[in-house]
Amino acid sequence: MPENKHMHIGVAYRILSLNNMRLVQRTALYTRGIIPGKKVAIQHISPLGDPLIITIDHQTLAISREMWAGFELEEWSE
C-alpha cells in the first residue's frame, strides 16, 4: 500500500495537488472544501493505526491512510 512520507502529528502542511488520486476520491475531497493551497495537519492517528484524524479549515475529519497517500504536500511556511 502506498504511504505518504508526511505523517508527522501536529505539523502544518500545504496541499500542493490532489492529482495522484482517483477522480471519485478527489470529488469527495472537493465537496469538503479540501482543495490545493489549503493548510492541513494530522491531529491524531487512531489507536489501531488506520484512520488519520486531520484538521482543515477548522473542521476535523477522519481519513484513511490510503487516501492520505494521495495528497501531495509540503511543509507550511507563511
Binding site: A28, T60, L61
Partner: peptide, 10 residues
Amino acid sequence: AETYLLDLPS
C-alpha cells in the same frame, strides 16, 4: 470503499 472520509463533529 473507495473513499473513507468521515466528519468528526465537535
